[in-house]
Amino acid sequence: MKKKFTRPRNREAVDVDITSLLDILTILLVFLLMSYNASDLQLDLTKNLELAESNAQELTKFAPVLQVNKNAVVFLDNKEIGRLPASGSMAELTEALKARKSMTEEANKKLVNPHKPELVNLIFDKDMDYSIVQRVMHDSALAGYSQFKFIVKGNY
């Protein structure tokens, strides 16, 4: 049996009170604006790595990211290179950095604002011995990187 079509009665549109929603959105907006970081470096920290704390205020810049975690395992742009040897230099690291540098130089030819090819971002675990920092800096220098930026966590 066909249902008889009935015209809906004229009802007044219901007014939804959005004041509370607006309040939440405003708070969220302020919180996000306060935590906004204008840096052009996207950072993904590896496991077993705790950043050193500092009151530095200079924003990070785009460059290759070299991370060394608590177990002395080296990552270049989140790709594992290997574990640092007990002493001496790490040939795999120097080779990987050389390849990365030539990639940057090649990419720079097409860019209007080229990146600095001699700059590398270094991330070390805060409890890491300075001797390891020294060795990584040395290996980086051998690959042609002469400017280092230590990435630290703001603690103010």
Binding site: L32, S35, Y36, N37, S39, L41, L43, L51, S54, A56, Q57, E58, L59, T60, K61, N121, M137, A141, S146, Q147, F148, K149, F150, I151, V152, K153, G154
Partner: peptide
């Protein structure tokens, strides 16, 4: 939200 970094990271510059 997409561009948020909840850990404030900064840099200390140095050179050889």
């Amino acid at each position: 939200l997409m561009s948020a970094q909840f850990v404030d990271v900064y840099e200390i510059g140095s050179s050889l």
